[in-house]
Design a protein around this nucleic acid. Structure first.
Length: 332
DNA sequence: CAGTATTTTCCTGCTT
DNA sequence: AAAGCAGGAAAATACT
């Protein structure tokens, strides 16, 4: 698994996307990494499972407390990969510990060594030690990884930096952020994706929505969609809401304009669109398209129109889960 | 399998 | 001029 350099590449690609000079007012968050790439690739929440089907990870199926040093290392590099963390920023020499030692680390310590990933690791461990079944834990991984990636990406250490797990929401659709198949995400394509383009009406399902006209950039090379139906409840508005109500996720992406009224604004519209696209495994999502979907919400009173102000929307009476009262337990 | 819901994609025209 | 906003149309797919 010497994929670390690729990973850091991808990572900086992501940075370059997230920090595209779209909004100069946001210069406050500096990732402190070199920006190498300049193409539009976002590769945040896609869990590039390093272990392809065949073999299980050495650490899986065993309680972290009982891991050997090797297993610990395995697990850490697994997390690094899956979180698309720039591995070069991590001092692996400090990972020389067994599971018991690892488990006894305070979140601060982990953060010290791993940066924002430390929080990730901590909550991950916590989850594992509190006996989640295997099937669930990867989902939880993803949830948390998702938030960590945001923090990572946004380069700003989370204020308090707690586990920041997804909160139970109450909306009927149960909506939260799990989605994302483990198996079928290849890396999102970058420059070199064109060679995948050959036969497109393959066997698999096509992407949702009207097919794009041919003759444009072959941006999407995701073919092997398995029939892993994304759970319902991940609607666009919920996605937006979830970002908004979690300040940790929210940095620089969206902000409340009037919290009480449910008025919010896109700060970095394209970045949010990319994120949404990732969630839907659609690398060609744009704000333009996302906003079309948002406009459909007006009719259903999920959003109310706010006119005159660009990038500003307002939750309507058929939306839920965003009011302060409704959100209480889910932050700090 | 049919129908509905929710997007996604595209497009034209208008406004900032 | 570029980026948003408005919606209509059409298509895909998830869900019922």
């Amino acid at each position: 698994m010497a994929a670390t350099c690729e990973i850091s590449n991808v990572f900086s690609n992501y940075f370059s996307t997230m920090y595209s000079p779209e909004d100069p007012t946001l210069a406050s968050v500096a990732p402190a990494t070199t920006f190498g790439a300049d193409d539009l690739v976002v590769s945040l929440s896609n869990p590039q499972m390093p272990l392809e089907g065949t073999e299980k990870a050495s650490w899986s199926g065993e309680q972290p407390q009982f891991w050997s040093k090797a297993q610990v290392l395995d697990w850490i590099s697994y997390q690094v990969e899956r979180n698309k963390v720039d591995a070069s920023a991590i001092d692996f020499s400090r990972c020389d510990m067994d599971g018991a030692t690892l488990c006894s680390c305070a979140p601060e310590e982990l953060r010290l060594v791993f940066g924002p990933l430390g929080d990730q690791l901590y909550s991950q461990l916590w989850d594992m030690t509190s006996s989640f079944p295997d099937e669930l834990s990867w989902i939880i991984d993803l949830l948390e990884k998702d938030s960590a990636s945001f923090q990572e990406t946004l380069g700003d250490p989370g204020p308090t930096g707690t586990g920041s797990s997804q909160s139970p929401r109450c909306s009927d659709s149960g909506g939260s952020d799990l989605d994302l198949d483990p198996g079928d995400n290849r890396l999102l394509c970058s420059e070199g994706c064109a060679d995948h383009k050959k036969g497109e009406p393959k066997h698999g399902k096509r992407k949702r929505g009207r097919p794009r006209k041919l003759g444009r950039e072959p941006r999407d090379c995701l073919e092997g969609r398995k029939s892993k139906h994304a759970p319902r409840g991940t609607h666009l508005w919920e996605f937006i809401r979830d970002i908004l109500i979690q300040p940790e996720l929210n940095e620089g992406l969206l902000k409340w304009e009037d919290r009480r009224e449910g008025v919010f604004k896109f700060l970095r519209s394209e970045a949010v669109a990319q994120l949404w696209g990732q969630k839907k495994k659609n690398s060609s999502m744009t704000y333009e398209k996302l906003s079309r979907a948002m406009r459909y919400y007006y009719k259903r009173d999920i959003l109310e129109r706010v006119d005159g102000r660009r990038l500003v929307y307002k939750f309507g009476k058929n939306s839920s889960g965003w009011k302060e009262e409704e959100v209480v337990g889910s932050q700090d």
